[in-house]
């Protein structure tokens, strides 16, 4: 992974220290020492309430990772804390803000509301897998061009969602604002706005985000 800007690295280290402290407070020590069997068999009897770990293989951005995880670990936390893919952000941690949006087997989901152990063998794409600072995904480039962010915290989730929105419209998935359910949905601004409603931007960059998505949709063959 390319680290674009030095100040970001410094900030990440500060955040990492904070995150580890938080982990220590909520997850009892000794989790890694317990390794009951995973998969089809029920885990072996452990003292009631003791942490349980389980083996899982995740494919993230084309790379395979064999992990031994506390069963409670969310997909979001494994990406950030175990694989150090800190592009995916933790906002509300309860599925309301969309900052944690990643693409799993071609579909966007909230990684905060999904257990990592339930993604054995799944293909996971994070913002780091869409493009790099040297070779940005067209949606990343369009967000930069249209200033589709201010603080940038929601941006990775917005971009993962935006890429999926275009795919979803092209594959004919209807939305709440699709006028005729029996017709293919249009790549319209109304459709884009409705489909992006699961990604909150507290800076209010919405109109620029819609501009960025509209441009990519048009450039890649759709009508906006």
């Amino acid at each position: 992974m390319d680290d674009p800007i030095e100040t970001n690295i410094a900030r990440r280290n500060v955040l990492k220290t904070g995150a580890l402290a938080a982990t220590a407070a909520t997850v009892p020590f000794g989790a890694a020492a317990q390794t009951p069997p995973a998969g089809s068999k029920a885990a072996a009897a452990a003292p009631a309430g003791a942490p349980v770990s389980s083996k899982v293989t995740l494919r993230v951005n084309g790379k395979q990772h064999a992990l031994d995880l506390d069963t409670r670990t969310s997909l979001l936390d494994v990406l950030r804390e175990h694989l150090h893919l800190t592009g995916t952000k933790k906002g509300c941690d309860q599925g309301q803000c969309g900052a944690c949006t990643v693409i799993v087997d071609g579909r966007r989901i909230n990684s905060c509301l999904s257990l990592a152990i339930m993604h054995d063998g799944d293909e996971i794409t994070t913002i780091e897998g869409l493009g790099t600072p040297g070779k940005m995904h067209p949606m990343q480039a369009a967000f930069v061009k249209h200033d589709g962010y201010q603080c940038g915290y929601c941006t990775p989730g917005q971009i993962c969602s935006a890429v999926s929105v275009i795919d979803e419209i092209r594959s004919g998935i209807p939305s709440h604002v699709t006028a005729d359910l029996n017709q293919k949905p249009l790549l319209s601004i109304d459709e884009i706005r409705e489909r992006m409603s699961g990604n909150i931007c507290r800076c209010g960059a919405y109109s620029n985000i819609v501009d960025a998505i509209t441009e990519v949709a048009a450039a890649t063959g759709g009508k906006a």
Binding site: G98, R108, L113, V165, H176, T178, R195
Partner: peptide
């Protein structure tokens, strides 16, 4: 039924 589903939650949640 389709309309009710599409009126609920967000696309990310409906995908799961």
């Amino acid at each position: 039924l389709s309309r009710a589903l599409l009126a609920g939650a967000s696309a990310q949640l409906r995908n799961k």
